[in-house]
Amino acid sequence: MRAILLENVTKKFGDFTAVDGLSFHVDEGEIFGLLGPNGAGKTTTIKMITGLLRPTSGRIEVLGMDVTKETMRVKERLGWVSSEVILDDDLTAMQNLWIQAKLYGVKNWKERAENLLRFFGLEGFKDSKVKGFSTGMRKKLEIAMALLHSPEIILMDEPTVGLDVVSRKAVWEVITRVNKELKVTVLLTTHYLEEADSLCNRIVIINRGKKVVEGTPEELKNSYAYDVIELESAVPLKLNGWDVIYSDGNKYRIRVKDAASVLPSLIMEVGPQNLRKISVKRASLDSVFISLTGLSLEEAGGIDERKLQMILRRARR
């Protein structure tokens, strides 16, 4: 059984089509990434899976249940972590967990809540008001809340947006542990390519509500990504037969499939005595996105500064 299945899902807001005929599935036990620039339709997709929004057309199944028909039963099996940090600042960590437990009808919630706080290293703060928590702590508490009712699937909308590098790495580790140790299927959205690359088993890239490509990070890199060799020589070069994508004086950028296997022949052709500098940029999901859409993520949507600031402001309140 698929954990999540989307079939030809479309969501329109008036004339604007936010999600356009999107299909993909998430297998049980994997970390699946929904990747795309801002405004690509990621959050709308997540909202439709949680039942917050109804699709205009198409079909969404969670654990074999139709979301629009069995909304309440689906909600019981899903955990959700928002892109904004949503906690009640006036209450303590335990009070926030208590409300969550009541909303989901969790029995023996106290024991479970304490275990989760320990799992995330927050046990020392259980009776502290959330007001004083750092953004990283808030995120962890949110994830703990999402896991309180033991969902099979957890949906994370931009789990690391607005976090500094250290907190981001910490959240990555948390996500991996949740997936491996607690056996929870994870669907996350992100516009950080390296995040999808290092966390996800499989990803789907979407742009303007449409699926661009789907596969494992490796597959995508193998089929769409190129290494770039940057070299500077002492003399002008001809480089016939090489895919030169950029040149400036005696500096060249060459696009190749696999830099490691062609470097020796390239060096031989240029002549080691002419070579001043040589460096290799390995293929990444960034280059996948560029080669598929012609644009970098920043150019396609960029980081929404206003939204980011809003999230940060909320988180620091």
Binding site: T50, G51, L52, M72, R73, K75, E76, L78, W80, S82, E84, I86, D88, Q100, L103, Y104, G105, R314
Partner: peptide
């Protein structure tokens, strides 16, 4: 505005 209603509406609460 703070998103808390989303948190509640995502849960199985009528």
């Amino acid at each position: 505005r703070l998103g808390y209603l989303k948190r509640v509406m995502v849960s199985p609460t009528r």
